[in-house]
Amino acid sequence: MTNLRNHNVPNMMIIRRTLLGAMIALALMAALPGAAYAQSPTDARSFIEATAQSAIATMADKQLSRNDRDDRFRALFVSAFDIPEIGRFVLSRHWRTATPEQQHEFLTLFEEITVLTWARRFQDYDDERLETLEATKSGERDWMVSSRIVKREGPPNPVQWRIRQGTDGAFRITDIIAEGVSMAITLRSDYASTMQANGGRIDTLLATMRTKLDQLRAAG
């Protein structure tokens, strides 16, 4: 018990300091919109760490009901992932031929599929920890954050996060690269092949996506 209390004291101080820092940062960003892109590697790393932390905290909170947990996941993933950007990349050349209505429906379905996919992945969460290693700038607004997932048994898995800073100054994930495999490229290959098989019709793709969504929902 005393041990716990001792740990709590510096924790509270850190939280207070972080809050203060966040408020100052927000105030600065509001005052200097042009300076929003000038972030350091530390900021890029902390974004990934904070995102992983919230995901783990949501998962570890046994008090939450299933619905509440799903809602939190949705909120977390929609804010953490740049889903419109990933969606446009995934549809690639077919994005341009799609009507605005089709684009809109595609993104809605794509977001839903992404959220369900990741919620399910986190169900298997088994005490893994994420350690960020370094962040390097790649392009004006893009960063690559390398990290590794440490499991209870076996060697750690290297994971790289491609993140982009939006016009609002916030970071969002645009790709995850695990052991050389890019999530965005794999998805693009999947969707391109589906488009090719159906003769390049967006409406057929949307129907396939709705079926997939029903399957994912049914599987829980």
Binding site: I113, T117, R120, E179, G180, V181, S182, I185, T186, S189, D190, Y191, A192, S193, T194, A197, T208, M209, K212, Q215, L216, A219
Partner: peptide
């Protein structure tokens, strides 16, 4: 479970992994 076309997903995974 998550792919629309399991075949092309596996193809992409394999080729990316080998290249890396």
């Amino acid at each position: 479970r998550t792919s629309l076309d399991f075949y092309s997903t596996m193809r992409s995974l394999y080729r990316q992994r080998r290249k890396a």
